[in-house]
Design a protein around this nucleic acid. Structure first.
Lengths: 331, 331
DNA sequence: TTGTAGGCGTTATCAC
DNA sequence: GTGATAACGCCTACAA
């Protein structure tokens, strides 16, 4: 007999007790004789009994697993967030089912359905954004969820995200204070709230210094190194006048730096570059950036979700985590 | 009534049929009147019925989910592999439970137990290595599994990994051909088979050119950027004579490059640097490296596992994927 | 073509 | 302290 075929029934038979006495022993319930318990535990161990969570989930209506839906599991930002989620999950005896939604509405919809079918206890999601906010339509399941790294207006959902207005402000202020006059804001498409917040911060800094924004220096590209690289080459070719660049994230900044270096533009002397996220490689290339507490976002997101699952909190949480400027050598 | 509380029983009642007629309709079985089927499907849709996979898994003894155990889910190599696994998983209507084993035997053991309890249909694992090979002891469950990115002697396990002997050879040969005389091999601890293979390749190249290896130029450090950075500083401080470095992976190479740059050592003029893996950032910093088909490793690993699960293949697969030199600007 | 009955492995309720 | 029984929701014989 295979080990994972052994059931409490088998143990009961050998121990000469009923199945629910076995259940009691295995689940540390009271109302059981210490000696029978010990005996049962021994038999279970000897037989190599492995509990069937599938069965207990059915009975308990709890799967002790959560679903995690990311737009792109390869994005270093999400990788770090995932690490935080995974850690918290493990610490609380939960498991996690991961799905890469590939920034695609249809896949997101389908994934959500699968999560519902699996009866996950809760969902952590970074919703797909394509211009419109279709998110609300999608989640009409009765599953607790919290949104990670984004904010939706008019939706009563739990959210945890970074203070991107502050981040945009700190970055821009830093550039201005270091002599930046023509500051390009290299933003991305499809990030309504996040990119808008960073833009607001950018604007705020300009206002604080009584400067006016040159809208011609604001660009939106795909969230991709090569797109940033190419765009920067364009700036150079078209002889756009700029002395600093605030990039939507570190990945874009990498592309920018590569393009500048290849054109012998000195960083930071000719052009200052600042990124966003502070992903792990940024310290190596000495990129100045805004640090987001990624691990913490994931870790806390799980705990917010857990409270929802256990009905400990009824009110909606909108958690906004602090960010900080990390000054390195590209500014 | 919540949508996920609706069962086939409810549908049966409304449709005025028995529950297994509903089951037949829902599962596209033959032997059902097309009209009753249509009616049932409509009712199911209207009620917002969501199948309970927990229940069907119990009945079918199939969970349609696999477990993925990685030493470190944050390592870019595994991130890419995971992407491949996730894609293949999704395409085959499977799901994936992810656990970060934190390079720790105890966590690995515990995680494996959880996977067994969840009755995953199969496991994809990059086993923890700490000097000894304790892996065999751990997997004595009756669950199909395939080992990713590693090879164990004397174990009849399915494995998929890269041709690291070739990779080590290509890297070293490239350095020698470009004038490398004193080639440091910066390897890591805890990677018995992989690091040993790369070493064998290194050795092979030396032999081919009738050179003798200087064992004083072989080092083992932790698999960590900062460790590589510090070690390189040591080389410089101790005035070790070297003109090139073959790094165990790209991450180490990043640390090395940083240290060299800070000490005004020109790359590749004074020192050539070559990495391994070709993770995504390496193209940006123009690191010469050995490319491993990471996505493919994950993607194919799933398919090997799937065949095991479906009993399509009884023999053991040892798949060794090809690698290639990617010449960029650090050599 | 459809229905009845039983069981997957666990846990909760209740009685003893 | 312990046991019998039912139930979680689904699927599969088998019978009708």
């Amino acid at each position: 007999m295979k080990k994972n075929d052994i059931t409490i029934k088998d143990i009961a038979k050998i121990a000469g007790v009923s199945i629910n006495t076995v259940s009691r022993a295995l689940n540390n319930k009271p109302d059981i004789n210490i000696k029978t318990k010990k005996k049962i535990l021994e038999i279970a161990k000897e037989l190599g009994y492995i509990k069937n969570i599938t069965a207990s989930s059915l009975r308990n209506k709890k799967t002790k697993t959560i679903g995690v839906l990311f737009k792109d599991i390869t994005n270093p930002f999400f990788v770090e967030v995932l690490k935080g989620i995974e850690k918290a999950t493990k610490e609380n005896d939960y498991s996690l089912v991961l799905m890469d939604v590939e920034n695609d509405f249809e896949i997101e919809k389908k994934s959500l359905k699968i999560m519902a079918e699996k009866r996950v206890d809760g969902i952590l999601i970074s919703p797909v954004r394509k211009g419109k906010n279709n998110f609300k339509k999608i989640i009409n399941l009765n599953i607790p969820y919290v949104i990670i790294g984004d904010h939706f207006e008019n939706i009563d959902a739990d959210e945890i995200y970074a203070n991107d207005v502050k981040g945009g402000y700190l970055a821009t202020k830093h550039l201005i204070e270091n002599g930046g006059k023509n500051i390009i804001f290299l933003s991305v498409k499809n990030h309504n709230f996040v990119s808008y917040s960073r833009f607001l911060g950018y604007k705020k800094a300009f206002e604080e210094f009584n400067l006016t924004i040159n809208k011609k220096l604001i660009f939106e590209i795909d969230e991709d190194v090569n797109a940033a690289y190419k765009k920067t080459i364009e700036f150079i070719d078209e002889k756009i006048s700029f002395d600093s660049m605030f990039c939507f994230n570190d990945i874009l900044a990498y592309g920018v730096i590569k393009a500048l270096r290849e054109n012998n533009i000195k960083i930071p002397d000719d052009v200052m570059v600042i990124g966003y996220d502070d992903i792990i490689y940024s310290s190596i290339i000495d990129l100045t950036t805004i640090r987001i507490p990624k691990f913490e976002i994931g870790y806390r997101a799980f705990h917010i979700l857990l409270d929802k699952i256990n009905n400990k909190s009824k009110e909606i949480s909108k958690i906004i985590l602090d960010v900080e400027l990390v000054k390195r050598k590209t500014t």
